[in-house]
Design a protein around this nucleic acid. Structure first.
Lengths: 90, 90
DNA sequence: TAAGTATTTAGGTAATTAACTAAATAATAA
DNA sequence: TTATTATTTAGTTAATTACCTAAATACTTA
């Protein structure tokens, strides 16, 4: 979770997640949506992957990225613990 | 939300939120839980407040801080949009 | 094997952030 | 009013981050 919070702090990375919500995409397809360099996008993808928010899958020459929902679910539980219903005490 | 993601990236700020989950606390009481200086804690409180995660209330000489659950609820909605059930398409 | 495409790694720089100390502001109590 | 306590603001510094270009790696195709 620690890594996820840091990963989510950057707007470029949140936009990458938004794109992956629609479709699985290659690193190149993701980079094409931004005006920043491919190496920079590659760095962002690495950070998202380290945080467990995305996973990659190699398909020949390409690397496809897709969301991993596990950490999002953890995030939901975390945030719920701060709302009325989220109190685990009796 | 943009500010909230940035605010949540720091572990000190997340620990402050954990403390406020239990009780409303003054800035001094919060600072006492950490080994960092009071001015630094004050800065963190300002960031959390700007992000809408906490609110303050003056009581004489003291300033009490408490959670504001609104942004946590927004965060839950945001995270849910990335999980299976969260798709708004038909 | 050689050339081309996709992606990452390496190394460097500018901007941001988190911490500090010192000083300012606000309220209370003597 | 003066002293004390609580908290924030101001200014500085060290660490982190986000970006860049250049080079390396991996795969495909001729």
């Amino acid at each position: 979770m620690k890594e996820a919070f840091k990963a989510l702090a950057d707007p470029t990375r949140r936009k990458i997640l938004d794109l992956l919500k629609e479709n699985d995409l290659t690193a190149g397809e993701i980079a094409a949506e931004f005006s920043i360099s491919k190496p920079s996008i590659s760095q962002h993808l690495k950070i998202l992957k380290t945080a467990g928010l995305i996973e990659d899958e190699k398909d020949g020459q390409y690397i496809y990225y897709h969301l991993n929902t596990t950490v999002f679910q953890e995030l939901i539980s975390w945030a719920m613990s701060f709302t009325q219903g989220g109190n685990t005490d009796a």
